[in-house]
Simulated scan of single mutants.
Amino acid sequence: MDAFAGYLASLVGSWEALAAPHADASVVRGEGFVAARFPSHPVLCNAILLDPAALPSIAGGYGAGASYAVWSADDATAAALAGAGWRRDETTVPMRCDLRGLRPDPGAGDVTVDADPGVVAGITGVDEALVRGVPGLRAFASAGRESCAVLIPVGTDVNVSFVATVPGARRRGLARSVLRRALREAAEGGFATASLQSTPMAEPLYAAEGFVPVGAWQEWLPRS
């Protein structure tokens, strides 16, 4: 399995874990696409277009008026979306880290391991129900509850998400400390790799901790 395929398996597995506690949520693996449907949590309504011919199937699955984004990772799917009238939104960076080569960390700061998921909700502003009851989810937070991260296991990989710091506590290294502690816990737990999706702004933070880009996502929204 190449690096992007491993990342993609981790991403989709994390969506499935997040959907598990919610009766109205689902992740559909279709021919040429994967679609996450979270009617109660539209922030997670995203679809991956793997084959341009699958675009009508994605649109039909969400229904008219639904709020969702479609992601492309290559020129052919991007061209299909542009040709269908979709508009470009943000670009994100899929990244992976080999935990087997993780450098020893002599001091990752004062970090709470297995924090209550409600702390993550408070820092990120997401609905607390979204992060409760998720199979295998582990939450990490700085001691003062200013910064957080979540790990979701997917096979031998951990998917890293909900990495955030409250505005008043940024530029103090808190996210780095939380991330380092979370990765150390994953490595000590026997996981081989970690995967995440970064904004361009956060990419240097993750690169400094051993993550490398394995592709590029272009997110698309329907024309309004």
Rank of each mutant, 00 (worst) to 15 (best):
P42V: 09
L50E: 14
A35D: 06
A129S: 14
P135W: 11
A5H: 12
A53M: 08
D2G: 15
D105K: 04
Y206P: 03
G83W: 09
V113H: 08
V178S: 03
V111N: 03
W86V: 00
G61T: 06
L183I: 06
A115L: 08
A121V: 10
V212Q: 12
V163M: 02
C45N: 15
G13N: 14
A149I: 00
D127S: 13
A76D: 13
G63A: 04
L81Y: 00
G189Y: 07
A36L: 10
D74Q: 02
R176M: 04
D24T: 14
F38C: 13
V43Q: 10
F38A: 13
A69Q: 12
Y7C: 07
A19R: 12
S40K: 12
A69G: 08
L179R: 00
V34C: 09
A54Q: 05
Y206K: 05
G155V: 15
E203Q: 14
A5K: 11
S67D: 14
A175Q: 05
P213Q: 14
V154N: 00
L102I: 11
A79C: 07
V111E: 04
P56R: 04
S147G: 10
A36S: 14
A25C: 15
A139W: 01
A78T: 15
A9I: 01
P39F: 05
M1L: 14
R138G: 03
H22C: 10
P167W: 09
A108M: 09
F38T: 14
A73R: 11
R37Q: 07
A79T: 13
A69R: 12
L81D: 01
R145I: 01
L11E: 15
P52I: 04
P153F: 06
L137D: 01
F33H: 15
P153H: 06
R132A: 08
G63E: 06
R180P: 04
D74T: 03
P200L: 13
A202R: 06
V131P: 00
G190A: 08
C45I: 02
S224I: 02
E203R: 13
S142D: 07
L49D: 02
Y62E: 02
D2K: 10
V119Q: 05
F140R: 00
V70S: 01
F162T: 00
S72L: 05
R132I: 05
P42M: 08
V43L: 11
G118A: 14
G65T: 06
D157F: 09
R180F: 04
P135V: 10
V166Q: 09
R132C: 11
L49I: 06
E185M: 07
S224M: 02
R171P: 01
V214Q: 13
V178D: 01
V12R: 06
G83M: 10
A186T: 04
G133F: 09
D2M: 11
D116M: 13
Q218W: 10
P21K: 11
V12F: 08
A35T: 07
R181Q: 11
G125I: 13
V70C: 03
E185K: 02
T91A: 11
V111K: 03
L8D: 08
E219G: 08
D116Y: 13
A53L: 09
T91F: 04
P106M: 04
